[in-house]
């Protein structure tokens, strides 16, 4: 019984970790930069395809393919930021929605054209498959790995945003561009780097997610709800908000599916509604 409970808790946390990983990039662009980038999934998909490509074509091992996914998505993100996105920082959220959905449509068609509509295979290293025993309990190896990645990313992002000069500059630039520029902060550069960071995280999430979520050209729209769940329910402007949301949703979703599978489909949405009722401006809303 207790073993079950621990098992469910572990699965829930690992599922929440996955949600966090695919959504954290959007938490950066939406939360920190206040840009509604619905093309987040397209960057994640790009990371996914990069991972598959370098692994299958060039035989790059999985652990090296992941940084490649980050870099490729970040680079493309930076490029698009310089050429297109930056024109829309002052536009309304609705314009941003239309623009980024348009980009997503283009990405989906382009991916279909290049890779075809079928699922792509990914082979994770054998020590990440199967289960490992800890204290007599079985834990999924890949799930443990996902949790580990989340810990690293959270610490790194937390440090970057809260403790470094760059983080302070981001926060300043987002809060008031004019004053920041007046203080000698290169707002253009800061925004470009932040956007690249968000895109890179999306790409990393895409690469990590294939093992569980699969990868085909409809990826950006298929999981858009999950990206939004993580980035929007947690409250904009923090990393802890999205993390807490993802973990709560993950644990309850898994528990619901295990204990009351009949209503398994409803749990995640019903819980989200409850969270929104309890915390209308997000779990850890920095900006009300």
């Amino acid at each position: 019984m207790v073993a079950h409970l621990i098992g469910v808790l572990f699965d829930g946390i690992s599922y929440g970790s996955l949600l966090f990983l695919i959504g954290v990039g959007l938490a950066v662009t939406l939360g920190l930069m206040n840009f509604v980038n619905l093309a987040h999934g397209a960057f994640a998909m790009l990371g996914g395809y990069s991972t598959v490509l370098v692994m299958s074509r060039y035989g790059v091992p999985f652990f090296l393919a992941l940084p490649v996914a980050f870099v490729v998505s970040a680079a493309v993100g930076a490029l698009l930021e310089r050429t297109l996105y930056r024109r829309l920082y002052r536009a309304s959220h609705l314009d941003q929605v239309l623009f980024s959905i348009g980009l997503t449509f283009m990405a989906i068609s382009a991916a279909t054209f290049v890779w075809g509509p079928t699922q792509q295979p990914v082979r994770v290293p054998s020590f990440l498959q199967g289960q490992v025993q800890i204290f007599g309990l079985d834990f999924g190896a890949y799930r443990l790995f996902l949790i580990g990645v989340v810990v690293v990313i959270t610490l790194a992002l937390g440090y970057l945003v809260e403790r470094t000069r760059f983080g302070a500059q981001i926060r300043a630039a987002v809060d008031n561009q004019q004053v920041s520029a007046g203080l000698g902060i290169n707002v253009d550069r800061i925004f470009c780097l932040t956007f690249a960071l968000g895109s890179g995280l999306a790409g990393l999430g895409g690469g990590l997610g294939i093992e569980v979520l699969g990868l085909d050209p409809t990826f950006p729209l298929k999981y858009i709800v999950y990206f939004l769940l993580v980035a929007a329910v947690g409250g904009a402007g923090t990393i802890s908000g999205p993390l807490a949301t993802a973990l709560i949703l993950g644990v309850f979703d898994v528990a619901g599916k295990y204990y009351v599978p009949e209503i398994g489909a409803f749990v995640i949405y019903a819980l989200m509604i409850v969270l929104l009722i309890l915390f209308p401006s997000g779990l850890f809303g920095r900006r009300a």
């Binding site: 297109l84 024109r87 829309l88 536009a91 309304s92 609705l94 314009d95 239309l98 623009f99 959905i101 348009g102 980009l103 997503t104 449509f105 283009m106 990405a107 989906i108 068609s109 382009a110 054209f113």
Partner: peptide, 18 residues
């Protein structure tokens, strides 16, 4: 869908507010 996406992007870049 590629072309309709392009249409949406172009419209936003040319004219804010639809």
């Amino acid at each position: 869908r590629f072309w309709i996406g392009l249409l949406l992007v172009a419209i936003v870049l040319v004219a804010h507010g639809g």
